[in-house]
Design a binder for these strands. Structure first.
Length: 697
DNA sequence: ACGACATGTCATTCG
DNA sequence: TGCGAATGACATGTC
């Protein structure tokens, strides 16, 4: 446990709760479900306890921290509300919310949590959550000056909360004055020192025990101060603050107004459609809050929502896979989002009012609205895009895709359905997260279905979320509604895809055409991931073929045929799979063929070289042989003449070599034979040798 | 702009 | 007859 020492120590006003959320930390932990339970009448001087809080405040808000603590960020009530080191059941948490009458701040994904609550049957808890929201909305009077003041009070953020990590440090100078009873709005000057202190308290785990003791002591002190302030506030009705004509921000600045309605909060939220929290500067001073959730009696306390609320926590951004969602990116759309979000909230609480055009100020009491709600209403209205994605997924798995539909889908550049090639991947990740889903108490009655899927098989599949054959067959027999209900929990589960780059969904718009010679992929629409995929891989992905291309191509024919028979595949999918297999095999064959051809060419070239070398060698050998032969012949010729020069006839005269020849007999004897008697062959040889010797001479 | 080269694909043949 | 391998021919992308 870590105690965050408050940066106000005057203790004469209601507590200005500022939870310093590290923007960077939140960006890194966007899947954290953050709830801020802000106990009423928490006094200034109370210490902020972040159960299970590790080193980072943002991380400490995780509902499932590694330490096992219950990641609620709450103020320890001076009256001694004991922290609960053990994670309470979800329903208990919701009941606590309702019992306390405190608002929940829709940080990161509390709305997703709401879906989870509804889906898990905890309608009461969902109502409690919605109650606070609806109560705030019901009193909405438009975006007031206070809201604007808050929004304008974030010069350091530059309108981009992500770009202003230092904005919490840039809170107003006025807040440094301990005499200020309440924090001022619009002071973007800095809680620098305070935050440093807080962060320091968090980071130095070695001082943990010391901090805890100090916290305990200070809680006792603050308890007295809080009771005093509580009495002061109790004397001032909540509506009184509303009566004043003084601009809210001015009132805040002057410290004369210590109330801040949840309406203000939701006006802030609704004024920022893209990110309900975007316009709230971390440097904003605490806003006095007057809470009336429509269920419990009004309570008053001050919180610094500006710092308690995190950025980058819009449900659409956190849950859906639409990083390039025009809903968020389009500046024009942004301007229209406040009402849209508000209307969504309205429709959430009472769809009929929305349809009938009830304005924002015409809300029925929350309880009346909520009684008319069903879980399906809630699920439907929470985010229709989720079901768009689900429907398309089920279409792929159950009915297959019509080529024209697929083509139309992919060629629609303005499509904002969220269904994309990446979304299918996303579905995979969502499916994988069912394990964590099942960890949630009462999470889902169908989690076992999806949770039983083989991840190993899914990982290799091109199409993303596909079960094993037997599981798929089972799923096919389920009703659509059931299937959708299962998948409806996806947004509630941890979805880590919102860090995708805006280009991640560009592949959605890839031109899809059936394989053909004239086909040309418009790579401009492909993201880096899909650009690396082959055409067949993209097609298989688009048609949600539940096998990887490698499997399709390299699988033995028997396994391949049995696989096709085991899966419910459309003719279109089967045709594509067979084409993929054919093309894949032919591609390999072509590669092998070219490799062999190249090898043959190389071998032939080697043969040529070898033969040429051999030819040269033979030439040399032949030349050497000729030389040797000539030498021998010359020696024979010389010997011949030498022999004749020594020969004498019977009369002692030299023998004429032109008239006689030497002839070797078989027994080794040498005879002098007249040339007339020499055989023709011997004669020719003798003549040849004679001519050669003459030429040589 | 052009050619060389690599690669994928189709059509066809062959075993 | 079906299938896979092999291969020529063509198209396309890249350098």
């Amino acid at each position: 446990m870590k105690y965050l020492k408050p940066w106000w120590s005057d203790g004469d006003s209601l507590l200005h709760l500022t939870i310093l959320l590290s923007l960077a930390g939140l960006r890194l932990d966007l899947d954290l479900d953050l709830y801020l339970l802000l106990p009423p009448r928490t006094l200034l001087g109370d210490e902020l306890l972040l159960p299970g809080g590790p080193t980072s405040p943002a991380y400490a808000l995780s509902p499932f921290p590694a330490s096992g603590g219950w990641g609620r960020a709450e103020l320890l009530h001076p009256k001694g509300r004991e922290r609960d080191p053990v994670a309470p059941p979800e329903g208990q948490l919701l009941r606590e919310v309702r019992a306390l009458g405190v608002p929940f701040i829709p940080c990161t994904r509390v709305d997703a949590w709401l879906v989870h609550s509804v889906a898990s049957g905890d309608a009461d808890g969902a109502h409690a959550l919605l109650g606070a929201a609806a109560a705030a909305a019901s009193s909405a009077g438009g975006v007031g000056a206070g809201v604007n003041g808050v929004s304008q009070a974030a010069p350091g953020s530059g309108g981009n909360p992500r770009a202003a990590p230092s904005s919490p440090l840039a809170a107003g100078e006025e807040e440094k004055a301990p005499a200020e009873p309440t924090a001022q709005v619009s002071d973007a000057g800095g809680h620098a020192s305070e935050e440093k202190e807080v962060l320091g308290a968090v980071d130095h785990s070695s001082q943990h025990e010391e901090n805890e003791q100090r916290a305990s002591t200070q809680r006792e002190k603050s308890l007295q101060q809080k009771n005093e302030d509580e009495n002061k506030v109790a004397d001032k009705p909540a509506w009184e603050a509303e009566k004043t004509t003084e601009p809210r921000n001015e009132r805040h600045r002057n410290g004369t107004d210590t109330s801040f309605s949840l309406e203000d909060l939701f006006q802030l939220l609704s004024s920022q459609p893209e990110n309900p929290l975007e316009g709230i500067s971390l440097g904003d001073s605490p806003l006095p809050v007057s809470i009336n959730d429509g269920v419990n009696s009004p309570t008053h306390y001050n919180v610094n929502f500006s710092q308690a609320i995190s950025h980058d926590v819009n449900l659409h951004e956190a849950m859906l896979l639409c990083p390039d969602n025009t809903f968020r990116r389009d500046p024009v759309a942004r301007t229209s989002q406040p009402q849209e979000l508000f209307l969504q909230l309205n429709s959430l609480t009472n769809p009929e009012h929305t349809r009938s055009g009830t304005n924002l100020t015409g809300f029925l009491p929350f309880d009346n609205q909520m009684r008319n709600l069903t879980n399906q209403d809630l699920l439907y209205d929470l985010d229709i895009n989720i079901f768009d994605e689900i429907n398309l997924m089920s279409l792929a798995t159950e009915g297959g895709f019509d080529p024209m539909e697929v083509s139309q889908l992919f060629e629609e550049p303005d499509s904002d359905s969220g269904l994309s090639l990446n979304s299918s991947h996303n579905s995979t990740s969502v499916t994988k997260s069912n394990s964590s889903h099942s960890e949630c108490e009462g999470a889902s009655r169908s989690s076992s279905d999806l949770g039983s899927l083989s991840h190993r098989d899914l990982e290799g599949a091109v199409g993303g979320c596909y079960p094993e054959p037997t599981k798929l067959c089972h799923m096919d027999h389920r009703s659509d509604s059931h299937f959708h209900e299962d998948l409806a929990f996806q947004p509630v589960l941890h979805n880590h895809t919102y860090h995708l780059k805006p280009s991640a969904l560009e592949s959605t718009y890839e031109t899809f055409s059936w394989p053909g010679k004239s086909q040309k992929i418009r790579h401009g629409y492909l993201n880096d991931t899909d650009r690396n995929l082959s055409r067949d891989e993209r097609h298989a992905k688009a048609l949600h073929i539940p096998f990887s291309v490698d499997e399709i191509v390299h699988m033995p024919v028997d396994s391949f045929n049995s696989m096709l028979s085991r899966y419910y595949l459309t003719d279109f999918q089967v045709s594509l799979i067979r084409d993929i297999r054919r093309r894949g095999k032919n591609k390999v064959a072509a590669q092998n063929c070219r490799r062999r051809k190249l090898d043959v060419i190389l071998n032939l070239e080697d043969d040529v070289c070898n033969l040429q070398a051999k030819k040269e060698t033979l030439k040399r050998e032949r030349s050497q042989c000729h030389k040797a032969i000539n030498i021998m012949k010359q020696k024979l010729h010389d010997l011949y003449h030498d022999v004749f020069s020594r020969l004498r006839d019977d009369e002692g005269r030299p023998v004429n070599p032109n008239q006689y020849a030497l002839q070797c007999s078989l027994d080794g004897s040498v005879l002098i034979v007249p040339k007339e008697l020499v055989t023709p062959g011997q004669k020719k040889e003798n003549q040849k040798g004679k001519r050669k010797s003459e030429r040589r001479n």
